[in-house]
Amino acid sequence: MRVITLIENTKDSSKNLTSEHGLSLYIETNGKRILFDTGRTNNFIINAKKLGIDLEQIDATIISHGHGDHGGGLLSFLKINDKAKVYAKRYIDEDYYFRTMLFSKSVRINKEVFTQYPNRFEYVDKFTEIMDNIYIVSDIEKPYEAPEGNKYLFVRDRNKVVRDTFQHELIMVVKENDELIIFTGCSHNGTANMIETVQNRFPNLKIKAIIGGFHLVRMPLIKASSASQNEIDTLINKILDENIEKVYTGHCTGEKAFKKLKNVLGSKIIYIRTGTELNI
């Protein structure tokens, strides 16, 4: 499997690429080309051209959840790619907000994409194999606590705004050589919960790697302190208990939390930046 980070908050200083607060991954696996999330703008498309990646050849696009830093570039993508289905949970088109006592900001995906390209969306409401050995897990079990940073994230429910329960979030799982690679967007439901869910769904298969954001920044959109040590320890223990070989993370994990993970996981964990290429 080949994975290239098209957008992340930071960038590989050796490459002439643009970074932004968001995430987009290009994946080649099982003879297919997958786009996992699209960042905030069309910058991932510009980066892809510089990296020699032809996004017109993408076979399928997966949007991990309904926030604009993961689906904001979708409209630009659909204008250049006329074949890829977009797989997502049904609730990604809702109105989502980041809120504190003094501040409120919309973090939804531009709704124009849903009205202009309604036939391109394939809504996944149950466990589904969308292509050979490529799966969407839609129902996430929650034996562990969700990330603390979720308390600042809300959704409009009819005439009121309520705390988001993240029913719009999914997991993508790829099976290669009877091993699993998990892809997360922001892990709003909790990375430990996602690992547990995948292990229960595929009880006889080893999780080789997990890739994506882990939402260990306590206050989203603001570079604040990381999640509690207890939350970080829960994730570390889950990674070690499941004997996951490699952990690739960035974006909403935050560099402060990453350092704490690195102190324990060592070479098992790698920070992905815009331009990072992985061969798994």
Rank of each mutant, 00 (worst) to 15 (best):
Asn30Met: 07
Lys238Leu: 06
Phe103Thr: 01
Gly72Glu: 12
Asn279Leu: 12
Lys105Phe: 10
Phe154Tyr: 14
Leu74Gly: 06
Asn119Glu: 14
Tyr91Asn: 12
Gln167Glu: 13
Glu28Trp: 07
Ile45Glu: 00
Asn110Ala: 05
Arg33Gln: 14
Asn243Arg: 03
Lys15Phe: 12
Val3His: 05
Phe183Met: 04
Thr253Asn: 05
Asn204Ile: 00
Ile232Tyr: 04
Val3Lys: 00
Leu180Gln: 01
Lys49Val: 14
Asn110Ser: 04
Glu20Cys: 03
Leu55Trp: 10
Ile232Cys: 06
Lys260Met: 07
Ser106Asp: 13
Asn150Val: 14
Val173Thr: 06
Ile239Ala: 10
Lys246Gly: 00
Tyr26Glu: 06
Phe36Tyr: 15
Ser13Val: 00
Ile27Ala: 10
Tyr144Ile: 00
Asn81Met: 09
Thr100Glu: 14
Phe36Met: 05
Glu176Gln: 07
Gly72Lys: 11
Phe114Val: 08
Thr61Leu: 10
Gly250Gln: 11
Lys111Ile: 05
Asp54Cys: 05
Arg120Asn: 07
Ser187Thr: 08
Lys11Phe: 08
Glu169Trp: 12
Asn230Arg: 05
Lys238Ile: 09
Lys260Gln: 05
Lys175Leu: 14
Arg33Lys: 15
Val107Tyr: 04
Asp82Cys: 14
Ile27Pro: 09
His188Met: 04
Tyr135His: 09
Thr38Tyr: 11
His188Asn: 08
Val161Leu: 05
Ile62Asp: 02
Phe98Asp: 03
Asn263Trp: 01
Thr128His: 04
Asp69Cys: 13
Leu102Met: 12
Tyr123Thr: 03
Val264Gly: 00
Asp178Leu: 07
Lys268Leu: 13
Ala84Arg: 03
Glu28Pro: 02
Glu148Asn: 11
Asp164Arg: 10
Asn9Gln: 15
Ile207His: 09
Asp12Gly: 09
Leu205Pro: 04
Ser24Leu: 11
Tyr152Val: 03
Ile7Asp: 06
Arg2His: 12
Ile63Gln: 01
Phe154Val: 02
Asn16Ile: 11
Tyr152Gly: 00
Gln229Gly: 07
His251Thr: 09
Tyr152Cys: 01
Gly275Trp: 10
Thr5Cys: 13
Val107Leu: 14
Glu145Cys: 11
Ile130Asp: 02
Glu179Leu: 09
Ala146Cys: 06
Thr184Ile: 09
Lys111Thr: 03
Leu55Gln: 02
Leu75Tyr: 15
Val174Cys: 09
Glu8Cys: 08
Gly213Val: 11
Arg40Asn: 08
Ser64Glu: 06
Leu240Asn: 14
Tyr117Gly: 05
Ser64Gly: 14
Ser225Ile: 10
Arg40Glu: 15
Pro220Gly: 01
Thr165Tyr: 15
Gly212Val: 11
Ile244Met: 06
Val3Ala: 14
Lys15Leu: 15
Gly254Glu: 08
Ile280Pro: 13
His67Ser: 08
Thr100Ser: 13
Ser225Cys: 00
Glu176Arg: 04
Thr38Glu: 09
Leu240Cys: 11
Ile272Cys: 04
Thr128Gly: 04
Glu129Leu: 04
Phe103Leu: 04
Ile45Phe: 14
Leu170Phe: 05
Asn204Ser: 08
Ile4Ser: 11
Gly68Glu: 13
Glu231Asn: 10
Leu240Ser: 08
Gly213Tyr: 13
Glu28Asp: 08
Val264Asn: 02
Ile7Cys: 10
Asp157Tyr: 15
Asn16Ser: 11
Ala48Pro: 05
Gly52Asp: 07
Thr253His: 14
Asn200Lys: 15
Glu148Val: 13
His188Ala: 03
Phe183Lys: 02
Phe103Lys: 03
Glu231Arg: 04
Asn81Lys: 03
Ile272Glu: 02
Asn243Phe: 02
